[in-house]
Design a protein around this nucleic acid. Sequence first.
DNA 1: GAGCAGGAATCCC
DNA 2: GGGATTCCTGCTC
Length: 489
Amino acid sequence: MDTLTSTMLTSGTALDGYRWNSLSPSPLSDNEDEEEYCRRIKVEHPFEVDSDAFFRNAPPPGISHQMHKRTAPCTAIPLASCATAAASLSSAFCKRSNGFTKPGSLANESAFEDASSVSAPLSVVKAEQTSHSEDCSRSNELSLTNNSVVTSCNDAAQMDIYRDLILRHLIQDISTTCSKLALPTDPYVWTAEHSGRWISDMCMQFQLPPPRELFLAGRVLLSMSQEEFIARAPEGGDTLHAQLQLWKTAFESYNQQNNGANQNSQGVTQSNTRLGASWPAPSSPTLSTETNADRLGSTQDYVNNFNPNTADVAPNMSYYSANNNNYQTLQQDGSILSSLPQQPFFATNNSQNAANILHSPSDSEISSNASSMNDGNSTDGVCVEGRSASAPHFPRHSGTVHLWHFIRELLDHPKQYSSCVRWVDREEGTFKIESSHHLARFWGQRKNRAQMNYDKLSRSLRQYYKKGIIQKPEKKQRLVYKFLPPYNL
DNA sequence: GAGCAGGAATCCC
DNA sequence: GGGATTCCTGCTC
């Protein structure tokens, strides 16, 4: 398992990165009819004032949209998704390593295992996997009919894609964070002030109490172990350590890949990328309301469209003020634009969102940071720049929302939706629809199809059989389906 | 009756 | 064109 993967998995941080509302509808009880259930959901569900609002995501009054998005569940998915993907990757790697026994390929397999080890940077993994794939291709040319070889080739290619996707994802996050906080991309060159900025941002993102003894130079921070982090920051030290390791790993991997590319294209080796590190520079701040997530509706979209250079940038910056025990939003000139006490981010806002269909879970932001970045023009009436505060305008999802993606997002937020759909076996990808009526209704609301019902929804699910996205589990059970790889990641 | 499976036509982005 | 929706028949539990 590589550093990137292990960092995600060992920290537990990424999974905790969800900032979904703590309030959630309780399951439908046996003696409760649907109407009662719906009424109760309206009461219990934090951001629902009507049925349609169930999947809207408007910030509550007094909360900047930037902050809201940053902590909103559907925008805080990326790292968690990365962790999930990483877990599957790890599992897949292990299976693959164990199952690949073709004689003569041991060297490559060994390299593969090495590449999966903790110390191997992603670029090395990529190179080794490429080598491995080439070997497989040669094997195919020789008309070897060993199915496991072919399967392994496919696995390798798939793993390669996932790994690359995770790295890209991280790079995008980091890139936008750098722009937002005016940080060098290389954490080794961070000053104590840089570290302080980053830590404040992390604390805000993960709702951690600000540590008092971690405002050190980046080089010092990077030399510290997790235990040392925890010693200095008992609450969240592990999170900060893990996040920093993620940053470091992604940065180094990116540089390594970049160097490789440069060498290939120019025949010139950049001997020192540390001081002259060139990170993909985010684009200029934009007023566009189309987020990356809006552009990227699916994993494939993400793979096809990802470009760190298109990451939007927030003109403002939020940070945690230990003095005031709140979060403040800074303008670029340093003046405080807003000052917000800590409070639940999903307090119901009855007045907003009538004209705005916001993110449903299936609008999950591919990158929490990236998605929050484009929101400098917050639309909450508090932190608005260059736009009328009285005319809130939230991004409307314009891309295709896939049912499988929608369900995945519900599954990944069990606190909210376990009464509707829940994992039966997360590893296996098996899930159960607990309330077909509600799932269909939610889907109908999301797609603006009032006549949607479970019969139609299930027909759509069955369309996925042919596409290899979903299937019924071997042991057929009613309302139980199974995501097939890689959709179970 | 509810869920499942799949064909076919249609709609919509 | 792809994905989803709508409608349908027939089957199983």
